[in-house]
Computed example of a mutant assay.
Amino acid sequence: MTPERFSRITDMLNHRQPDLTLCLDKVHKSNNVSAIVRTADAVGIHQIHAVMPDRGMQVSGNTASGSQQWVQTVKHRNITQAIEHLKLKNMQIIVTNFSDKAVDFREVDYCQPSAIFLGCERDGVSAEAIALADKQITIPMIGMVQSLNVSVAAGAILYEAQRQRQLADMYGINKLPEAYCQKLLFEQGHPIYAKACRRKGLPYPKIDELGQIKANREWWALMRKPADDPGNIS
């Protein structure tokens, strides 16, 4: 791994916000999902959630521009399961909804642990999510059409959350588990060796403070054995 790539990945990890997330409530159009994932990566979202009871969520590589490699997706069978999971993480549940209870999305404190729910393209956020929400938000509009594409709405809300968190100096400190960071650094910094580890059944080695592989002689010996070596474990 080059020093430049190590620095870039490390900087990305230092800006991830594990206590800020999105939950897609049956958003099914792959181009919208991909655009949301791309924006999530851009503002430092570590993980998004998706309620997909009928079929698997697909992310278009072209629209996501590779961001799906950096943002985890957790799938849930139903909205209750998703909200219970997020409340266990002490997140406030925020839903986008047109109602008398909804406030301007800029009035919410996103520096608190927050899960923002976005609804499907046709029906919006489900009634179940609205009933279980802590807050309802809306994006003010003064045009003839009173709705935004879900990926555009996600972008507006996430950049407001980013603005608030930057003002509160919440970026720049790594808040992610060390095991996750080590795994990502190895897989994304040394992809050929990572593939070989999976093929040979070898454990991932540690990555040192310079981004290089830190492994003992036995590990290197097993890694270097050719595929046709009878002693090879692959």
Rank of each mutant, 00 (worst) to 15 (best):
S114C: 10
S151P: 04
H15A: 08
Q47K: 15
F117S: 00
H85E: 13
G155R: 00
A40G: 08
R5P: 03
D54I: 11
I130M: 10
S234W: 13
R38V: 00
R198L: 10
F105T: 02
Q81K: 14
I142Y: 15
I36Y: 02
I93D: 00
G56Y: 07
K135H: 14
K29N: 11
A168K: 12
L222H: 09
A129S: 09
G119Q: 06
C120T: 11
R8I: 11
T10H: 05
I93M: 09
K75E: 14
A179G: 08
V150Q: 04
K101F: 11
R165I: 00
V152P: 01
Q81A: 12
K200F: 11
Q182V: 02
H190S: 01
R165C: 02
P177A: 02
K101S: 12
C181D: 05
Q68S: 13
S126C: 07
T10G: 07
T63Y: 06
L222R: 04
G44A: 07
T21M: 09
P18G: 02
H85M: 10
N14M: 05
S234I: 15
G66T: 09
A161F: 01
D25Y: 04
D208Y: 03
G201S: 09
P53C: 12
M91D: 04
D54Y: 15
Q92F: 05
A131N: 08
F98I: 11
I213D: 05
F186I: 03
D229N: 15
N78Q: 09
V108A: 09
P140Q: 08
Q188I: 05
S60H: 00
D54W: 12
D228A: 09
A40T: 03
V108H: 00
M1H: 15
Q212T: 14
Q136K: 04
I94P: 01
A154V: 01
V95E: 04
C111R: 07
I139G: 06
E128G: 12
G172K: 06
R77E: 14
R199G: 03
A133K: 05
C197D: 06
L158I: 02
